[in-house]
Amino acid sequence: MEYFLQQGLNALALGGTYALLGLGLAVVFSVLGLINFAHGELMTLTGYGIFYTLLMGVPYPLALLAGVLIAALAAVLMERIAFRPVRNASPTTMLLTSFAVSTILHILFQNLISARPKAIPVPDAIIGAVSVGSMQIGIIQLLSIAITAVSLLGLTLFLKKSLLGIAMRAAAEDFNVARLMGVNANMVISTAFAISGILAGIAGVLWLFQRGSVDPMMGFLPVLKAFIAVVLGGLGSLTGAVIGGFILGIIEVSLRAYLPDGMLAYRDAISLTLVILVLFFLPQGIVPRRESVR
């Protein structure tokens, strides 16, 4: 039972990270129809941001903040420079553009920084565990869950209560009419990218807590998995992205915990196959997008 609870917390922590990544992808997708492959590079940038600010002697919490802000800024710049020329293009065109941007960025990281991992120390304060009853719970896990919860709550409030958030939801439903009402299209799109950057940055911080180092490929695999989580949840739905992220986290942690040792190497293949199997039954994902045939 205790083992099960512990694994449950692990699943929440990992699922939360996927949920944040998936949410960042979904925010951009719902407004622009763009699947941003370069989302992973935003995560990586957070890592390098923290590494260099720490090197400059900035205190740890501020360095984390700087890392997240750098990702947000980079996301906005990415849109201005690379994605604006293909705005309104077909999903395929936008997807390939973002793939090219992603590839260029990670080759730049390799050449300008280093192909090798750079270590980022994790403060002692959060390495340990606290005991609850007879259970030992990792502080990092608890922190991850708390940060995920606060981020999700914050984003929900922003989207429901602020005019900019409402305008973003309006733009996601009907971009042209939102423009027609005088909503500034560039403003909405920049905000969407800034939000996705912040979410990627926060996910990056959580990822770094687990790994303790950053390398050019850091964001690549988690974001690929987040893509799949988003499709599982239902492409275009923010709620779906969060649900998909948590489900993928649960699947991965369960496989890690319960798969026999000899099979552990196969766990990515198994978890992704499970997801594709779910899609066989639910081609629209768990939260399908409203569509009417008229």
Partner: peptide, 26 residues
């Protein structure tokens, strides 16, 4: 302002929020 053909309200937004978007220009 233009009221577009086919109504084009924002279906997932409340009536109040739809109206708020109408006053978002300045």
């Amino acid at each position: 302002t233009l009221t577009p053909e086919g109504r084009r309200v924002f279906p997932g937004l409340s009536v109040a929020d739809n109206l708020a978007i109408g006053a978002a220009a300045s």
